[in-house]
Write a protein that binds this DNA or RNA. Structure first.
Lengths: 252, 252
DNA sequence: TGATACTTTATAACCCGTTTTAATCCATGA
DNA sequence: TCATGGATTAAAACGGGTTATAAAGTATCA
């Protein structure tokens, strides 16, 4: 590596570090390319020379963490069905470790998020889930009479949609976790074998109970803020989905 | 309605019509608030006075068509499981009637798409699906031992994610349709009753075959463009998901 | 050391969505 | 007919992402 290249990669690192700082400090509101350049001690043109665009910079932030996530996932020791649910747990744990940061990065990236975003974030995850599901099938815990690609796509899409919904403030982290578990268990229960059926159904029931508990407590805290007018009550009754969303908006 | 109010609603209509024209003419690239104002023969400030923001205008475009969709859905006569799949067909048909328009509007709206978007587009659809699923349950075509809210959320989320993926250019309309059918059938098969099990499984198999056919033809057309280098081949092998996406990008 | 080649810099510009300001229009009611 | 008052207008401005330009800087090689 020539000295030019080191100073270039140094600058890249500076910019990514500055982006992290800004994102963590006060969200994507404070994250303009001009403030980023200032924070990194660099001119406004440099980030464009080195990264090309704002979303590339944000993608660089995500990529590092996602690599950590996958590495940790490789070290799990459990039966092949449990690993699937642990993958969910780890995703939630990753997000919970620094929620504002991830929320800001993910929603910022997916706002502009062209195909690049999908390709870099969703793509690798699809490969990962496909592998996990194949391993479960090989262990005779999932039936093999359903197209593995189709199944993996469905599952991955569900996970991804949930994370995105969380990032956009439509779900609490807890509800995201519960939805992912429920959706996963539901899908799995459609192709579970005799060996794994009970295990999967138990997972499904527990995720279901978790969701119900979350809804009840969201509703309760909504009631504490004051009585419901009729319109709000109707919305809540029909659209429990939005309970979290609304309390989130009001607290913002 | 006073004469002021008629001229106001006239202006609203002009603006929405101009937005339709611009969207259909050349996509969201041509859709700036300044060109919109010009097209509508109105000052830049007026759209803000009447609608408040760009996304409100786009939402107004979507809302009318979604209302049509739901109205048409109310007139279906089929057994309660078939209606679910017909709802998918009708969604696809709606989008196919004017793909560029819907793609542009949806991706533009969901790009800026704050919670408003979700609330107005996804919310009513959730209510709709929940009703359809309840009717199927009451007809003893779905088991009732799974929380209907949780189930409806999962299904709606899947449908919505698929439409969004299509709007963002990651899926062909055909693949979106196939994915929706497959995901729906898979979820239903987890809670199908003895009466409906065969029907649902047949749907699942046919959607699966549909997806495979789409992948094969996408791969074939990709091969016609020239031989695959190793890297591309690896991506395609592991990530069939992106076949459509890539050919879409290249043809753009 | 000095010339070369490449990068970064400063700066201005462009278009975007949005907001603000004061001026202007014009239907309404006296 | 004319004053009133709300709606629309023109125009400028703000901060945003991004790009273009020429000047300044700096590592490499002769």
């Amino acid at each position: 590596m020539t000295s030019w290249e080191t100073s270039k990669s140094q600058r890249r690192d500076d910019i990514v570090a500055a982006a992290r700082t800004l994102m963590r400090r006060s969200g994507d509101a404070a994250f303009s390319m001009r403030t980023l350049a200032e924070e990194a001690g660099v001119s406004i043109a440099t980030p464009y020379n080195l990264f090309g665009s704002k979303q590339s910079i944000l993608l660089a932030l995500l990529s590092a963490d996602l690599a950590d996530y996958e590495a940790a996932l490789a070290n799990l020791h459990a039966d092949e069905i449990e690993v699937l649910f642990q993958a969910v747990s780890m995703m939630t744990a990753t997000l919970r470790a620094d929620p504002e940061f991830y929320r800001n990065v993910m929603s910022a990236v997916s706002r502009d998020g062209g195909p690049e975003f999908r390709f870099m974030v969703s793509g690798p995850r699809y490969v990962l889930w496909k592998r996990l599901l194949r391993e479960a099938t090989e262990a005779d815990l999932l039936r093999s009479d359903v197209d593995p690609d189709a199944f993996a796509i469905t599952v991955t899409q569900q996970m991804f949609a949930n994370v995105q919904n969380w990032a956009q403030g439509q779900l609490s982290l807890d509800e995201m976790d519960a939805r992912m578990r429920f959706g996963l268990a539901l899908s799995l229960s459609a192709i579970a074998t005799r060996t794994s059926r009970d295990q999967v159904l138990a997972r499904q029931k527990s995720a279901e109970a978790l969701m119900q508990r979350i809804w009840r407590s969201a509703l309760a805290s909504r009631l504490e803020q004051g009585p419901l007018d009729d319109e709000t009550r109707a919305v809540l009754a029909d659209q429990l989905v939005h309970v979290e969303n609304q309390s989130l908006k009001e607290s913002a």
